[in-house]
Design a protein around this nucleic acid. Sequence first.
DNA 1: TTGTATGCGTTATCAG
DNA 2: CTGATAACGCATACAA
Lengths: 335, 335
Amino acid sequence: MTIYDISNKAGVSIATVSRVLNGSDKVRPDTRKRVMDIIEKYDYTPNVFARGMGLRSLQTIGILCADSSDLFLAKAVYYIEQELQSNGYESLLCCTGYNLDIKENYLRLIVSKKVDAIILVGSNFIGTTEEENQYIKDASAQIPIMLLNASFDYPNVYSIYCDDYASMFEAATSMLDAGIEDILYLYNSDSYSGKRKRCGFQNAMQKRGIIDYEKRMQFYEGSLEHMNEIADFVAQIASEVTFNGIIASEDALAIGGIKYAQRMGIRIPQDLSVIGYNNSMLTTCCTPELSSVDNCLKSQAHQLVQTLLGVLTGELMPAKSIFSGKLIKRGTTQF
Amino acid sequence: MTIYDISNKAGVSIATVSRVLNGSDKVRPDTRKRVMDIIEKYDYTPNVFARGMGLRSLQTIGILCADSSDLFLAKAVYYIEQELQSNGYESLLCCTGYNLDIKENYLRLIVSKKVDAIILVGSNFIGTTEEENQYIKDASAQIPIMLLNASFDYPNVYSIYCDDYASMFEAATSMLDAGIEDILYLYNSDSYSGKRKRCGFQNAMQKRGIIDYEKRMQFYEGSLEHMNEIADFVAQIASEVTFNGIIASEDALAIGGIKYAQRMGIRIPQDLSVIGYNNSMLTTCCTPELSSVDNCLKSQAHQLVQTLLGVLTGELMPAKSIFSGKLIKRGTTQF
DNA sequence: TTGTATGCGTTATCAG
DNA sequence: CTGATAACGCATACAA
C-alpha cells in the first residue's frame, strides 16, 4: 500500500493524498473525506523512510543515558519519554555505560540517525576538560543538545538542572544548625553534579568554621545495588573516624548508613541523623524513613521537553533552566 | 555530503561507493582504499532514510514497556538494550503505560516505523481474552514479536519467561515446610505472570490441605513507590486476619510487610517470615535483608536477544524459552 | 571490476 | 483547490 495506491482508489493525485495526510487546510472537505475513507479502509500508513527523506526528520529524539536501570536515570528517562510522547515525538534510547569512548561513539551514531535532537540524561556526559567535551560540541553543530541534570555552556546546548550546590549546602547547614557537626559525607561520583554537591557540603562546613571535615568525606566506588556492601563500607569508616550525622549524594548510600547503624544498635535519629539525595523510592523503604533532597526530576523533565519544543520551532529559549532542590524531612532527622 | 559527493571526489561512480560502504568483495583493493580515504576524510555517513528505503530495515528493534521506571522493567530494558547494542542493533523505546488502548496504538505506531522486530517487556501486554490479544496477532503478521516474562502461543511470537508458577510454588512450599501455615499473600497484578504466581501459591496451599488461605490473599492497588503506604495496607489486613508469614509477588510489597512488622515490634524472622519476588535491589535495602525469588532476568534478556537474532537470520528458533526461578534465602526467613 | 539507469515512497514546488 | 513533476540519497539489476 503506497500513496499511489491510495490516490488511485480515491481518484485523486498523490499530492492531494499527501496533503490530507499532513493536515493541509487546502483540501476541499469532501475530497478529504473521500481520501480519508480509503486510507482507513486499507489501514494505510506512510512509509517512514520515504517520509524521512522528504522531511529530513522523523519526529524522533535521541536519548542517551549511561544506565537505564539506575534509579535516578530510569525515572528521568521515563518522565522525558512521557513528555515527548505526549508532544508527538518518539524516543530512540541508547544506554551507553560510563566509558567516555563508548559514549562518544553512541553520540556520533545517533546523530547519524537523523534524530531531531539529543537528550543527554545525567551529568556523567560532561567531563572536566575541553578535550573530553569535544564530542558534545561536534554534535551540537548538527542538532540541539539537551542536558538533564548537567550544565555546559555552548551554542545549541541547553542545560536543565537542579542547583545541587545550593541544595547540599542547605542540607548540611540544617544539620549543622541542629548541632550535628561531625558529618560523614558519602559520595560515589565525580560528575559535574557530584562535584557541585560536594562543594555545597564543603562550603557549609567552612562557613561554620569546621576545618577537619575532609577526613569525613568518603568516596564509595562499589555498586549501589547492594546496600549491605555499602553498610560494610560505612562500618569500616566508623572504625577510623567518628560521626553523628551522614549526608549522602545518593539515597542508596544513605540507606547503607542506616543499615550500618541498625547493625550496631545506633539509634536513628537520636544518635545519628541521615540525609539522602534524590528523594527516590528508597526513602520509604527503610525504618525510620529517609530524609532526602528532592531534585524535582519531573519538573526538570517537563522543562527540558518544553525547551526542546521551543528550540525545534525556532523560538529563542533559555540556555539554562535551574531548579531549586528541597530537603524533604522524614524520620532519619529530627530537625 | 552525499554518496554523489564522495563518488566525485574519489573519481568513481556512486555504485562503487555503495559497494565499498556495504562491504562488497567485488571492489579492487586500491579502489576501495581510495574511496575509504575520502569517506573518512569527510566523515561521511550514509543517510539512514535513503538507506532504509532500499534495505527496508534500519537495524532497529522496537521495545515496548509499560513503565521504564518500574524496577523490574527498567532492569529488563537495560539488559535487552545492552544485548542488542552489542549485536549491532539499536532500540526504539516506547513507554506505553498500562492502558490497553494506548498499548495498541503504540504497537501499531512502532510497527509502522519499520523496526525489524518488537520486544514486549513484561507480562502486562498479554490479556486474557482473544479480543485483548488481537493487536499482538496483527503485529506478528508483519514482524517477529518477542515477549519477555510472558507467554503467548502464536506464529511469529516468541516467549521467554521464568516459570513463575513453579517458583512461587517452591517458595510457598518451603515456608510451609518450616511450619509456617498462616501465610499472607500480597499481590498487585493480574497479568499473566501475576496469575501464574498466585496459582503457584494456591496450589502449594491446597496440596498441604490448607483451605482457608483465600482470606489471606490480598490485592494491593496503590503505587509501589511508597512503601509506607503498603505498610499501612498490611496493618489494616492484620487487624482482620492473623498471619506468621508473608509472600509477595513483588519485593516492594514484601518491604511494606517488613515495615509493618517493625512498626509493631514484630520480630523478623522469629515471629514473621517474609519472601519477596524479583530479587531486586530492594532486598538489600532493609534489615534484615529480604529473601526473594530470583527470576534470572539477565539470562532471560540474553536468551531473548539470541532467539531474536536467530529469527531475523531465518533460523528455526524455539517458540518458548522457560527459565526456572530460584529462592534466594536471606535474613527474613530462617529455613 | 566498474558504471548507468531505475526504483523506493514521500514531500514540496510549481503551474493550472 | 488540485495535479504534474522534480527532488531526496541510496541500493541494485543490468550493461559494459
